Deep mutational scan, measured.
Amino acid sequence: NNDALSPAIRRLLAEHNLDASAIKGTGVGGRLTREDVEKWLAKA
């Protein structure tokens, strides 16, 4: 759900042209964290 994304995470996803639904969030309530996105980028 994009409503649950912080502005910083939205920007990070946009910079790398990523789809938030492709990344499993580990934050509160399954929210994406910066670490989630960075780990996903490291694997890609």
Rank of each mutant, 00 (worst) to 15 (best):
K39R: 13
A20T: 07
A8H: 11
L12H: 08
S6N: 09
G29D: 13
P7I: 11
G29T: 04
E35H: 07
R10L: 07
G27N: 02
V37I: 15
L13G: 01
K43P: 05
D19I: 09
H16V: 02
L5P: 05
E15N: 06
E38L: 15
R34A: 12
K24D: 07
R34V: 15
I9K: 01
I9G: 01
G25S: 04
P7R: 12
G25H: 04
A42V: 10
A42K: 14
S21N: 12
A8D: 14
E15H: 08
A44L: 15
H16M: 07
T33K: 04
V28D: 11
K43G: 13
V28Q: 12
H16I: 03
A4P: 14
L18M: 10
E15A: 11
L12S: 04
I9V: 12
L5I: 13
A22H: 12
A14D: 12
V37P: 00
D36Q: 02
A14N: 10
L5Y: 04
D3T: 09
W40Y: 15
V37S: 00
L18Q: 05
N17F: 10
G30S: 04
G29S: 07
T26M: 05
I23V: 07
V37T: 02
T26S: 11
K43W: 10
A22M: 15
N2W: 03
R34P: 11
P7L: 07
D19P: 08
L32M: 07
G25M: 03
N17S: 09
A42G: 11
A44D: 10
R11T: 07
S6H: 10
R31E: 10
A20G: 09
N1M: 11
G29I: 03
A20R: 06
S6K: 05
K39H: 13
A20L: 11
R10H: 06
A14Q: 12
G29F: 04
A22N: 12
L5W: 04
E35Y: 08
G27K: 02
A14E: 15
S6G: 09
V28S: 10
S21L: 08
N2Y: 04
R34F: 15
A20Q: 07
G25T: 03
N2H: 13
T26P: 02
R31S: 12
D3M: 06
N17A: 08
K39E: 15
R31L: 11
D3E: 12
L32G: 00
A22E: 14
L5E: 06
K43S: 14
D3K: 10
A44H: 14
P7T: 10
A42I: 08
A22L: 15
N17T: 05
E15K: 10
R34H: 11
K39V: 07
K24M: 11
L41C: 04
A4K: 12
L13P: 00
R31H: 08
N1W: 01
E15W: 07
S21Q: 10
H16L: 08
T26F: 03
L18A: 08
G25A: 07
A20M: 10
D19E: 10
R31I: 13
